[in-house]
Nucleic acid binder design. Structure first.
Length: 413
RNA sequence: GUGGGUAUAGCUCAGUUGGUUAGAGCGCCAGAUUGUGGCUCUGGAGGCCGUCGGUUCGAAUCCGACUAUCCACCCCA
């Protein structure tokens, strides 16, 4: 049998209500926080991600869905949402509109990875980006928005971790200090960290190997190396979060794996959904717009994995989509035709209704109506059509009431 | 890319030391005196036991490879 490609998942009718719920909530929270929706293509020129995400990152080096189109262009399915948003910001001159520009999107993303709990090859991200604001007020506004979003979904078991990874200037100083520290214990590090010592010592802090982790405990802390500007920014963010009453932890080991991050980085983590516990990750990227050809412009945003969010929501009560208003059961051909017209008219008036499509017995029709979870049902036979009235049944209470067929819509309201 | 687990009905799983027509619960469909759901009862449909190969008189059961899936590393949302 054919099956969906590895790492992809269908959203089938019995589950889509979760997606609807989350998407509605995202749109509503964005409206209140002043973020406007932007939709960008699923694919972009490969170069966008090479420059935006960074040529040396794992995402670009080994996880992208890249192919040549029939015109010989190198195309890549978007592995993340930030670079496309920046590209669109520049291409559509959004910087010429009143600043800051606050955008949000819900989009599929693609990464060629080995699937596991909370990690798919096609996954969906709710993300926001804010351009043109360098003050930490926007940092805290965005974090408070995620906080609100999770709070209103009833997710209360996440930890907010924050950190600052500085600007290129102070990070450089810090890298030097780190190299010096790890150089002394080089022989003890794991294989990958051995390499990281050369390429990106920051990432050693993130290593899950107990040995490296232990060594990292004693490593110099980035916060001690921040330049004045970066330190003030981070202090400002902390003060803002306290002002808003949002709890956070400082985790000097969070290091985002995409090259563009500067200063603020943060993540919301769950310990209930397996190893891939980061439900939301984000941070500031003050160099990215310039890197992609624009003026020097501050930026900050986050990405939030919808599949992971659904995992976190596993045992929560999620409101189902609206029930069908009425099922029209019918006996015989004449009644079926009548039901057809009645259903059509009610649908024109905005009600949802269903009729028999399989010529089943009344009993079977009622069973089906029950499984659909309809609010009301009505049975039409020759006598009902003749008299123009029938018994409307409330499927929840079982209560019946005699009504005129041309007045059904009054009862459905 | 590396490691480990799993693979029997639509779903969740039984299947005794290899032995003949492979089972249960749930779900689906149909009935239980002729036109009304939920509870109960009865019946029915539905499985090349993941695929290929090997051992054996005989394999769902043992062995190997492959594939799929799950979990972890890595990476990240």
């Amino acid at each position: 049998m054919m099956q969906a490609p590895k790492g992809t998942k269908d959203a089938i009718p019995e589950n889509v209500y979760k997606w609807h719920y989350i998407e509605r909530k995202a749109a509503d929270v964005c409206r209140r926080f002043g973020f406007k929706e932007i939709r960008t293509p699923v694919f972009e020129h490969t170069e966008l991600f090479q420059r935006g995400v960074g040529d040396t990152t794992d995402v670009v080096q080994k996880e992208m869905y890249t192919f040549n189109d029939k015109g010989g262009r190198s195309i890549t399915l978007k592995p993340e949402g930030t670079s496309p948003a920046v590209r669109a910001y520049l291409e559509n001159n959004l910087y010429a509109q009143p600043q800051p520009t606050k955008l949000y999107y819900i989009t599929p993303c693609y990464r060629y990875e080995k699937p596991q709990a909370g990690r798919l090859r096609e996954f969906h991200q709710f993300g926001v980006e804010a351009f043109g604001a360098s003050d930490p007020t926007i940092d805290s506004e965005i974090i408070s928005m995620v906080h609100t979003f999770f709070g209103e979904l009833g997710v209360d078991n996440l930890t907010l971790n924050i950190n600052s990874i500085g600007c290129p200037v102070c990070r450089n100083e810090y890298n030097k200090a780190l190299r010096e520290y790890f150089e002394g214990r080089k022989s003890e590090l794991c294989g990958t960290c051995h390499d990281r010592l050369e390429t990106n010592p920051l990432r050693i802090l993130d290593c899950k190997s107990p040995i490296c982790h232990g060594i990292a405990e004693g490593a110099p802390v980035i916060l001690d190396y921040l330049c004045d500007e970066c330190r003030e920014h981070f202090e400002g963010l902390k003060a803002n979060l306290e002002n808003l009453g949002i709890e956070y932890k400082i985790d000097t080991h969070i290091v985002r794996g995409l090259d563009y991050y500067t200063k603020t980085v943060f993540e919301f983590v769950s310990n209930e959904i397996g190893a891939q516990g980061t439900v939301c990750g984000g941070g500031r990227y003050d160099g990215l717009v310039e890197e992609l050809g624009g003026q020097k412009t501050s930026g900050i945003g986050f990405g939030l994995g919808l599949e992971r969010l659904i995992l976190v929501l596993e045992n929560k009560d999620i409101p189902k989509d609206m029930k069908t208003d009425i099922y029209i059961a019918s006996i015989g051909e004449q009644a079926k035709k009548y039901a057809q017209k009645l259903a059509f008219d009610l649908r024109q008036k905005g009600f949802s209704c269903e009729q028999d499509l399989l010529s089943r017995s009344v009993k079977a029709q009622m069973k089906y109506a029950d499984k659909l979870g309809v609010r009301y049902s009505v049975v039409l036979g020759d006598s009902e059509i003749e008299s123009g009235s029938a018994e409307l049944k409330n499927m929840e209470t079982g209560e019946k009431s005699e009504i005129k067929l041309d007045e059904i819509d009054e009862f459905l309201k």
